[in-house]
Simulated assay, not measured.
Amino acid sequence: MGRPRARRGDGVSASVRRWRHDLHRIPELGLREHRTGDYLAAALREIGVEVTRGVGGTGLVGTLRRGTGGAIGLRADMDGLPLTERGERPYRSENDGVMHACGHDGHMAMVLGAARRLAAEGGFAGTVHFVFQPAEEHGLGAAAMIADGLFQRFPMDAIFGLHTMPGQALGRIATRPGPLMAAEDNFEIRVIGRGGHAARPQMVIDPIPIAAEIVLALQTVVARTIDPAEPAVLSLTEITTDGARNAIPGRVVLRGDTRSFTPEVRELLERRIREVAAGIGAAHGARCEVTYTHEFEATVNDPSAVAAALTAARLTVGDENVDGDVTPWTASEDFGAFLRVVPGCFALIGNGGGASLHSPDYDFDDDALDTGVGYYVNLVRTVLETP
């Protein structure tokens, strides 16, 4: 299999790399992307793209019009992660304790590169909105932009995005119709007993063995409740108490995370968590309170948008470097909230080997940038064909 080759625009490649490195230096946490927004707005205006700031807080939208026709969105996420970057690369984060460890610097640079090529070359009829979304890592930014009237103020027939994927061949583009990435929910179970002296257990309702039973019972929810053909994950991630070495606690708090792809499985996971906690607590004379929150929507691709994305991907890297039926990924992505409002397609672009996402050693591979720019340009020209 040959290495993917993207079609390049004259002078664009060097600018895209510079943008990526500059953005990597100035990472900011969600809804604090002020310097990032300033940088993006300046770059878009220099290209000749109309800019609207403050969409959903720190988000922004660039708009490029070429004649009449439909409208589509190209989305990039803006925020970094609360991690201290390792390594001595020349464009290392200048914001101590924050870094771009999820490739958002590369995502923004690829959309900027597509904007530059499309502004200079045209080749499409209609409107492209370049959507720069804040707070993806929190799962808050897409909803904030939608609530601020994103799709009313910037009408679009479809929206598209890319995410870097370590472990996937460099520059390879993969997607699928239907569910691509999972919904994420968080839960907290408060086991409320009656604490007391560790030497007098007969006087207490010990929440620790009750919590332990709940932990073990929850391990059977996916294995014995969910259809084996339906992907689902239930993870306990934290246990805390208000006890001490010689004091039995009165309360234990369990926290965890679930992933699913369909509303039915999502509802079933929540129901069983509540039932298991309430039943075991009642059996021991304790009370269990459950909080269950929806953090990310599932990313469910529209089949017609996927067809357009695959056409653009093949034009960019060739049939042999495109996977149109990639295995769904149980990580979550805020892009899914957009897809509940308008159709679209989210795809993965290979980052080769190296560190995993959300690692302090991660770095976006610059050799994937041209592929992403070429894909977006071909996508716009595929969807917004000139008459």
Rank of each mutant, 00 (worst) to 15 (best):
R3V: 01
R8Q: 15
G9A: 14
V12K: 12
R17E: 11
W19T: 06
H21M: 12
L23S: 07
L29D: 06
L29K: 03
H34Y: 13
Y39C: 15
L40G: 03
A42R: 11
E46V: 04
R53G: 00
V55K: 03
G57S: 04
G57Q: 04
T58N: 07
T58E: 08
L60H: 15
R65D: 00
R66P: 00
A71S: 15
L81I: 07
L81E: 04
E85Y: 14
E85Q: 12
R92M: 15
D96K: 14
G97L: 09
G97P: 07
G103T: 01
H107T: 03
M108I: 05
A115T: 05
R117G: 00
R117L: 07
A119L: 11
A120G: 03
G122L: 08
G123N: 10
F124L: 12
H129A: 09
V131L: 06
V131T: 06
F132Q: 13
P134G: 07
E136L: 10
E136Y: 05
M145V: 12
D148K: 13
G149P: 03
L150E: 06
F154A: 13
P155S: 06
F160R: 10
F160P: 01
R172G: 01
A174G: 13
A174N: 10
R176K: 08
R176Q: 03
P177K: 03
P179C: 10
P179R: 00
M181Y: 01
E184S: 14
F187E: 11
R190S: 06
G193M: 08
G193E: 05
G193P: 04
G193D: 03
R194M: 09
G196S: 11
A199L: 09
P201H: 15
I205W: 02
D206V: 00
P209D: 12
P209M: 09
I210T: 11
A217L: 15
L218Y: 00
V222T: 13
A232D: 05
S235V: 13
I239M: 14
D242T: 13
A247H: 03
P249T: 09
R251Q: 13
L254T: 09
G256W: 11
T258E: 08
F261N: 01
T262P: 07
P263W: 04
R266S: 12
L268N: 02
E270D: 08
R271A: 15
I273V: 15
R274M: 03
V276T: 13
V276S: 03
A278D: 13
G279E: 08
I280M: 09
G285A: 07
R287W: 01
R287P: 00
E289R: 12
T291V: 10
T293M: 07
H294F: 04
E295L: 12
E297P: 02
D302E: 15
S304W: 02
A313P: 05
V317S: 09
D319H: 12
N321G: 01
V322I: 04
D323C: 08
G324N: 04
T327F: 07
F335A: 01
V342Y: 02
P343R: 09
P343L: 12
F346P: 10
F346E: 07
N351D: 14
G353M: 02
A355E: 10
S356P: 00
L357H: 11
Y362V: 06
D367L: 14
L369E: 10
L369P: 05
G374W: 02
Y376N: 11
V377N: 02
V383E: 11
E385H: 03
T386S: 12
